[in-house]
Design a protein around this nucleic acid. Structure first.
Length: 266
DNA sequence: AATGGGACCTGCGCGC
DNA sequence: TGCGCGCAGGTCCCAT
């Protein structure tokens, strides 16, 4: 669930409440979340470290620490960071110098935490495509030209462009009026421009509204994000298109649900 | 290169 | 009411 706008929201929320605070101790209630190093080294490495800076790359959060190491968090689908925490669903609890707790929750145990000396050399990070905001139209067109695959799964391919997941891929293609099964290289020039603009417009609008709370995503405060009410296609299968009244369809693409308007998107 | 699976997990909503 | 099932989606990994 957490895609670029949700992770960016969490990043901005965290900046306001935990930067400058010290991690005094860590309680790990489910060690499966900790991917590296070992449990003991993870706890020892974090204890006493001050949170200096928070970064986001794609859907990944990075907490840079005074020790020189970084805490790298991927929320996958159901991960949450909640402050002040102390809830009983916590998988990992970070005790801070203000006496409060930063909870790392994750219902499905897909999420990953790592304590690393150099987060940039992490294989997943190395393989990431560009951030949408770092691209220009010319580059984006070139990237599309060499790809014969369907545009929707391509937008979700983190090695192609990073940060877009299932919700925003659907919303972006609706905004650009492009059918999700169109082949990337076959898009007309005008469509590539529309798509480029839609990517930035949709992601920025979603950030403005603090992301989409479908299922588990919440802000650091526990509040929901407000972008769901602006969704035009995601989760609206069977309902009528807000533009043309045609019934929104849901198909399967690469094993994942794709929502679209068969009339608006050609 | 592209595509289609399954795996990892858990809780929810559905049909019976 | 209760049970079993499919589904949800981020990423990895394997097979074709």
């Amino acid at each position: 669930m957490p895609e670029l706008p949700e992770v960016e929201t969490i990043k901005r929320d965290l900046e306001k409440v935990i930067v400058g605070k010290k991690i005094t101790g860590v309680c790990v209630y489910n060690p499966k979340i900790i991917r590296e190093p070992g449990l003991a080294a993870f706890k020892k490495g974090l204890a006493g470290a001050v949170i200096k800076k928070i970064l986001r790359r794609a859907k990944v959060l990075i907490l840079e620490l005074s020790s020189g190491e970084s805490l790298v968090a991927h929320l996958k689908m159901t991960g949450q960071l909640v402050y002040p925490g102390g809830g009983k669903n916590s998988r990992v609890a970070f005790h801070l110098s203000d006496g409060k707790i930063l909870d790392f929750n994750d219902q499905r145990l897909f999420a990953e935490l790592r304590l690393l000396k150099d987060w940039r050399s992490l294989k997943f990070i190395q393989g990431l495509g560009p951030e949408p905001a770092d691209l220009n139209l010319r580059q984006f067109k070139e990237m599309l030209d060499s790809r014969k695959t369907a545009i929707k799964p391509l937008l979700m391919d983190q090695e192609f462009i990073s940060g877009i997941g299932n919700i925003y891929a659907a919303e972006i293609l609706f905004r650009a009026k492009i059918h999700p099964e169109r082949r990337a290289s076959k898009l007309r020039d005008k469509e590539k421009e529309l798509l480029f603009k839609a990517i930035n417009d949709i992601l920025n609008a979603a950030i403005l509204h603090a992301g989409s709370s479908v299922d588990d995503y919440v802000r650091v405060s526990g509040e929901k994000g407000g972008y769901v009410k602006y969704h035009k296609v995601y989760g609206r299968q069977g309902k009528s298109c807000l533009v043309c009244k045609t019934t929104i369809k849901k198909i399967s693409q690469g094993g994942r649900g794709t929502h679209f308007c068969p009339r608006c998107q050609r």
